[in-house]
């Protein structure tokens, strides 16, 4: 069986949608962060696959993925730091408890 592009794109899309769904429905901040990571990694797969199958001549998509991975790591590090900061105050990581700011 020949593995074509679609075999990679469908899982990537499913990953992205799972991330989207998780981000919207999960109430745990760490789980939301994991969902975000799923979405970012789905994008990485997309870039690599498009580069490999559609435009094998240049490496633009691969390079973009490398940078995207680095950026995602930085984002996660910062988000975790901030979540820990909140955890110190409210002693859990449930977004339902983030209700101080409203009118």
């Amino acid at each position: 069986m020949e593995i074509t592009m679609i075999y990679y794109l469908i899982p990537a899309l499913i990953m992205f949608c799972c991330g989207l769904y998780g981000f919207i429905t999960r109430r745990n901040m760490i789980a939301m962060l994991i969902s975000l990571e799923l979405m970012l990694n789905a994008v990485d797969i997309n870039f690599v696959v498009f580069n490999r199958y559609l435009y094998p001549g240049n490496m633009e998509g691969m390079f973009f993925t490398l940078f995207a991975i680095a950026i995602a790591a930085a984002e996660t590090a910062l988000a975790i730091a901030i979540i820990i900061n909140v955890f110190r105050k409210i002693k859990n990581v449930d977004v339902e408890d983030l209700t101080k700011l409203k009118d």
């Binding site: 981000f23 901040m29 939301m32 910062l78 901030i82 900061n85 983030l98 101080k100």
Partner: peptide, 11 residues
């Protein structure tokens, strides 16, 4: 409040 705002912003 500042921390809570930061969580919302970063996410």
């Amino acid at each position: 409040e500042s921390r809570e705002a930061a969580v919302k912003y970063i996410l």
